[in-house]
Write a protein that binds this DNA or RNA. Structure first.
Ligand SMILES: [Mn+2]
Ligand SMILES: [Mn+2]
Ligand SMILES: [Mn+2]
Ligand SMILES: [Mn+2]
Lengths: 218, 218
DNA sequence: GCCATTTTTTAGACTTGTCTAAAATTATTT
DNA sequence: AAATAATTTTAGACAAGTCTAAAAAATGGC
């Protein structure tokens, strides 16, 4: 059974390696994990030993099927716990990450199955990210950014790209939550800033903000 | 902030040291923690360094006020999580301990406060043990064993002394749960075994069993 | 009060996960 | 195609938590 540290590394490699095999490099993992490259190398050797990753010296690393299964199971737990915190314990979406980061490592199959039942089989976490199923399958949704929406079109918030605390707080402050209806009124050609209509009030946002919000066209 | 290992030691010392100060000896801790005495000595030195215990070489150990606060907070978390698992996630009382043993170490004040609210401020866990309040105060209940009840008297199950898995399963099998009504019909003088009436059916139990069940006289 | 037994501590070793500094390898310039 | 720069790995160290084996202290019997 993988240790907490191993699980965190697997998750980091999973998130970094959306492309193909042998694509994730040591420095990228070190940056994501807030450790040094030398620590990453040590861990990669251990994970390779356990056949959770394919690792070739100097070439990069990727998850094996077993590693992928393990990683997506941790992500499943992380997102189910985030959902629990928001749905049942009055957490807001910018408060859940650190706690879920701990809860995802609790070892109990029954616990996570029953949590899933208790939450009525949610498909997405509070940030709009899909919750992998028991087999590790993740629902692939083609994500559109708010920045890609043309003036006059109405859409609703389907998630965020970067769920950094201060970004989520910005959204809260401006009454944008998961599912909130957004209409693009004007797209300024000069800086690509947008004027939106949200709940009968208008809001101007920068290109950077619009590039961090996923939407679904109504 | 104490590590997971430190928290487990503090809890063990707390449970062993119901008497007075300097009463808990190294071997007792080692036995409870399933470690060797030498490991305990090492840890006691570290905990003493952090002023969580008073420790005198060869004399024994006890918790400081700060240590007591920390320990009872972990026990509070343990018992709240056990309650959650039984109340909300369909765990039975013999399945909760190992999971709560992990969950008790999650660091988040908001989490435990909200869990308390969500469960509607429970006072006892699924085994009948009192849940310490935020300040660490534990409701002291004078515990009576079923073995102390005289024939003809009616009482209800208020908890168990040893919540070992196979003991709890024995109780489940015989339809004894927290709150179950129990009437003592006969107390056999020879071996102190009891004949009970539970839900209109009779059950004979040994002295050992009766010594593990706490009851409240109706 | 002394000897034997038990309890407790020390000494030294090991694993996991981390670090710094130096060496090796790969990538990029010119 | 070298030389330089960047990335990655190795070497050696450290803290936490554990162990075994040996030494030290306390306890109990007589
Ligand atoms: Mn984590
Ligand atoms: Mn999330
Ligand atoms: Mn524990
Ligand atoms: Mn309990």
């Amino acid at each position: 059974m993988p240790s907490q540290a191993e699980e965190n590394y697997l998750k980091a490699i999973y998130h970094l390696g959306k492309q193909g095999c042998l694509s994730v490099n040591t420095n990228a993992v070190a940056k994501k994990m807030n450790t040094k490259a030398s620590s990453v190398t040590d861990m990669l050797k251990k994970l390779a030993e356990k056949e959770l990753v394919n690792y070739i010296k100097y070439q990069g690393v990727c998850l094996t099927d077993e590693g992928k299964r393990t990683a997506s199971n941790i992500i499943r737990k992380h997102r189910l716990w985030e959902s629990f915190l928001v749905e049942k314990l009055n957490f807001s979406w910018n408060e859940v990450h650190d706690v879920a980061e701990q809860l995802e490592h609790i070892k109990s199959q029954k616990l996570i199955n029953e949590l899933d039942v208790f939450l009525n089989f949610p498909t997405h976490d509070p940030h709009g990210d899909p919750i992998p199923d028991k087999e590790g399958n993740v629902q692939k949704s083609q994500k559109i950014f708010l920045s890609q929406i043309n003036p006059g079109v109405s859409c609703s918030c389907a998630g965020v790209k970067d769920s950094a605390d201060n970004f989520l707080q910005y959204l809260d402050k401006n009454n944008i939550a998961l599912g909130t209806n957004i209409q693009v009124i004007v797209k300024e050609p000069f800086d690509e800033s947008l004027i939106l209509k949200i709940n009968h009030s208008t809001l101007t946002i920068s290109k950077e903000i619009a590039n961090n919000i996923y939407v679904k066209i109504n």
